[in-house]
Design a protein around this nucleic acid. Structure first.
Length: 591
RNA sequence: GGGGCGGUAGCUCAAUUGGUUAGAGUACCGGACUGUCGAUCCGGUGGUUGCGGGUUCAAGUCCCGUCCGCCUCGCCA
């Protein structure tokens, strides 16, 4: 070893010992006769002092050290003594008085310094990811990620789950997200697809008798990116046989609690609260509400159907909805300009045509449109929304889905802007009873809400012919801090029911055989009842680190246009490679 | 595909209504300094203002196009 200790572990108890450290120059302070180097590794920072009269041959080296040089230092651990202690460092009571030192590697002047408080733009950080990753905040994120995955493995190991890997080179299925394709050299003109998830494999593992499976699985989806979405990401993938919905939920309750304990030192209270899909859509306008704060949506459609305010009245008459939020003590928080521009603009991105608002003043509504509502209507609205003087009431009048999307977005904005919650809290809830299918207006057919292998709620089997939109699925989402943090379902385990679903989704038996034949075939050979779930590991790490960006919890993430700025990927390839694959490019004309 | 924000020294930023030689901090280079920890002090180097056009006596600034990064709508079974 080139070191005897790390830069984070020396303290007053080591005084007098001779130790060797190795690390990066985090900071240098050259006083002529004495040079101080803050030596950094991922364990911490230790100050090295070079007294230049003691040994002249290290003088030149000590004074030549610059940011990010890699050095090895041997010396005596000495107490810094009164007045020289640095309380900001865990190692601040001591320093290593260098007796000898060796430059292990000189660094070019780095484009930015890991210790800097102001970060350079993200383009540069991604290009020099190896320097960005030296920053203590990112190192901390990687450590939290490690802790979480270890907690996951320990938890499942304790329950006799097997960790089983599934292929990366798979087969394309037209449903769902766009696939990443890999051309086959051997099979001319054919392509593998990278897995969007190990969904079909894990079901087949159940048929194969591996009744408790998990995997920390890489998944790939060729869709546009977001702050919480990368083209390649990691799922904690779980499947269990001989279980019912309740068993999955309680297993995952335990997992999430164990994850929380591993990072935060204490378990989460379980069982985690449960809501129905209908309930959260009504109350929060989204299937992934952030319940670190309340701020519920109220529906006042019935109260304003007969008002003189045309917008509200006509909306209700068209069978649509007037819904809104009561923002406590916010009457003076947002100016008319902010309401009319910023907040209206916010709901506008979700299709809302306007944002109506009132202040509650002297027990009445106060705004330019208040005159269209009589006393009785005003009182009813205030009462419905539990309004009090000083509150701000805001409304969106639109279709159900637009009012949901707009108010959910507004609610999230307000929660953050008004600091309605503790940002370090981890708040989880289950959302149950999703609809099995949703009507696709464009394609004139039903689409699977979760995926086509999802079992039906036993009470709703009767709706297949009468009203498929009413069928509830045996599916469940785990929502955490407003993110979809896990999603799963009990699966269909007999081919006949599976075909019934395919019929509903307009997938013919021939289509089904073509696309999922291998699964259908497996189901015919003794498939046990089974179900599972997948957790988005990156998002969980992000929540536990308190971050809002998934790139900060992935060692080598991609940009919004899915490129790796460090690697320069994707890249063009050699003509010969294309020839081997029988691929000819047909690129759009460059202007 | 749509909307928004950004790109000026290695880095973080500034630059009035379009007007002198594009500045500051930091880094870097040289010098001074024996107790600093954002060390300090003195001096210096460093610019294709993302790229390409255009308007103008004059463009970092205005116009058109384009590239890159971020946020977002659509998209993500």
């Amino acid at each position: 070893m080139l070191r005897t200790k790390t830069c984070g572990e020396l303290n007053a108890s080591h005084v007098g010992q001779t130790e060797t450290l190795a690390g990066w120059v985090d900071k240098y302070r050259d006083h002529g006769g004495v040079v101080f180097i803050d030596l950094r590794d991922r364990y911490g920072i230790t100050q090295i002092s070079f007294k230049l009269d003691t040994s002249s041959d290290i003088q030149e080296l000590a004074q030549s050290l610059r940011y990010e040089d890699v050095v090895q230092v041997t010396g005596t651990v000495v107490s810094r003594g009164e007045g020289n202690i640095n309380p900001k460092l865990p190692t601040g009571e001591i320093e290593v008085a260098a007796a000898s030192a060796k430059l292990l590697n000189k660094s070019r002047t780095p484009p930015f310094e890991p210790r800097g408080e102001t970060l350079p733009n993200e383009e540069l950080r991604l290009q020099y990811r190896f320097i960005d990753l030296r920053r203590p905040p990112l190192q901390r994120n990687m450590m939290i990620r490690h802790k979480l995955t270890k907690a996951v493995r320990d938890y499942f190991d304790g329950l006799e789950f097997l960790e089983i890997e599934t292929p990366i080179l798979g087969r394309s299925t037209p449903e769902g997200a766009r696939d990443y394709l890999v051309p086959s050299r051997v099979h001319e003109g054919s392509f593998y697809a990278l897995p969007q998830s190990p969904q079909l494999f894990k079901q087949i593992l159940m048929v194969a008798g591996y009744d408790r499976y998990y995997q920390i699985a890489r998944c790939f989806r060729d869709e546009d990116l977001r702050a919480d979405r990368q083209p390649e990401f990691t799922q904690i993938d779980v499947e269990m046989a001989f279980v019912e919905l309740e068993d999955i939920l309680s297993t995952i309750d335990g997992l999430v609690s164990a994850m929380h304990e591993s990072v935060r030192g204490k378990p989460l209270p379980t069982p985690l609260p449960r809501y129905t899909h209908a309930e959260v859509m009504e109350k929060y306008g989204t299937d992934k509400p952030d319940l670190r704060f309340e701020l519920p949506i109220s529906n006042i459609s019935d109260l304003v159907a007969d008002s003189d305010f045309g917008v509200f009245k006509n909306t209700v008459a068209d069978g649509n909805f007037v819904r809104g939020l009561c923002i406590k003590e916010a009457a003076d928080k947002y100016s008319r300009r902010v309401l009319d521009n910023d907040l209206k603009g916010l709901v506008g991105t979700y299709g809302a045509k306007g944002l109506a608002y009132f202040k509650v003043t002297d027990g009445k509504l106060d705004s330019s449109i208040a005159k269209f509502f009589n006393d009785e209507q005003q009182q009813a609205i205030i009462e419905r929304m539990s309004g009090e003087d000083g509150d701000l009431l805001v409304f969106v009048a639109d279709t159900w889905s637009v009012s949901c999307a707009a108010l959910a977005a507004l609610r999230n904005f307000l929660g953050k802007d008004l600091e309605l919650y503790d940002p370090t809290e981890i708040n989880c809830l289950w959302v149950l009873d999703f609809p099995l299918v949703t009507w696709n207006e464009d394609e004139n057919r039903y689409d699977a809400e979760h995926h086509p292998f999802c079992a039906v709620h036993p009470d709703d089997v009767g709706y297949f012919e009468s009203d498929p939109g009413k069928i509830r699925a045996q599916s469940y989402d785990l929502v955490c801090n407003g993110y979809e943090a896990a999603s799963g379902s009990i699966r269909i385990h007999d081919p006949a029911t599976q075909q019934k679903i395919f019929d509903l989704l307009n997938i013919t038996p021939e289509d089904a055989e073509e696309r999922f034949g291998f699964l259908l075939n497996a189901l015919r050979y003794g498939a046990p009842p089974h179900g599972g779930i997948a957790l988005g590991l990156d998002r969980w790490v992000m929540m536990f680190t308190g971050g809002e960006n998934i790139r900060d919890v992935i060692a080598f993430p991609k940009t919004q246009r899915a490129s790796d700025l460090m690697l320069g990927a994707p890249s063009e390839v050699d003509k010969r490679q294309l020839r081997d694959l029988h691929i000819k490019l047909d690129l759009p004309e460059q202007s």
